[in-house]
Design a protein around this nucleic acid. Structure first.
Lengths: 126, 126
DNA sequence: CTATATTTACTACAGGTGTAGTATTGCTAC
DNA sequence: GTAGCAATACTACACCTGTAGTAAATATAG
């Protein structure tokens, strides 16, 4: 079968690795709240599978494995966003925004930030 | 294990059913491009599993099964959107918008629509 | 009515995914 | 240098998911 999109945990792991460049199993576990109560080998399995699927590579320092990302954050972001938007909102952010507004699912702050981002964009293209 | 989010196909099926109230296997297959070249029983399996997971129910008319949705479109939209945004964009639409703008991944039309939706909202709250 | 086609109900199977156990290897503190 | 702890490598297992085959029931055309 084909690998699905990234799961929440895989995403957290990637975020940690993008920030820290390379990490051991233990460090990864330490950095992610949701993994705190999981078995050490569970995290190991995640990491090994992500290597298998070419999201990561590993390198040994001494006898310890260090994992590091070999995929680009921006391209994954784009891929996940595109697939989400096209699946649910016919590919359109404005549809998403319309939904959030009409159902009151956006915070005041976020709405404000959204407006200011767009205003900013406006300026740039004057 | 836990059911993942809705797959693309499941989403299409739900959309068809929300529009048509109830449909047979054949009708579902006919209504979705991506299922055209799949075996009839593949669609049947999708539908039966969606019944098992309580997205749908079925009712017999004569000896034919008709499937219909028992979940609310809006609540699923909300659930999927929330989980996507929190997974990838820290729960914030403005982060998503910022990403799309900075990487030039939004069409002119969509951007225009987005602005007009926000302007509209502005008016409503005067 | 009977041969054919449709539909259902059930089964199957490979690969994904969350979760973790076990055996072995290697490090560390006496 | 050895007992114990930590890390690696490997294996396991149940449920998910895409895909579909098969047998039995039912409808349909002639």
């Amino acid at each position: 079968m084909k690998k699905q999109g990234l799961s929440g945990v895989e995403w957290s792991i990637l975020n940690s690795l993008w920030e820290n460049n390379e990490m051991t199993v233990k460090e990864v576990q330490g950095s992610i709240q949701d993994l705190q109560d999981k078995a050490y080998t569970t995290i190991q399995t995640y990491l090994e599978r992500m290597v298998k699927y070419k999201y990561l590579k590993k390198r040994k320092r001494g006898s310890i494995n260090f994992y590091y990302p070999v995929i680009d954050r921006e391209s994954i972001l784009k891929q996940e966003t595109t697939s989400f938007l096209s699946k649910i909102f016919n590919g359109s952010v404005s549809n998403l925004a319309a939904f959030l507004l009409s159902t009151d699912n956006i915070s005041k702050e976020d709405l404000k930030k959204l407006k200011s981002i767009l205003a900013e964009e406006e300026k740039k293209h004057e």
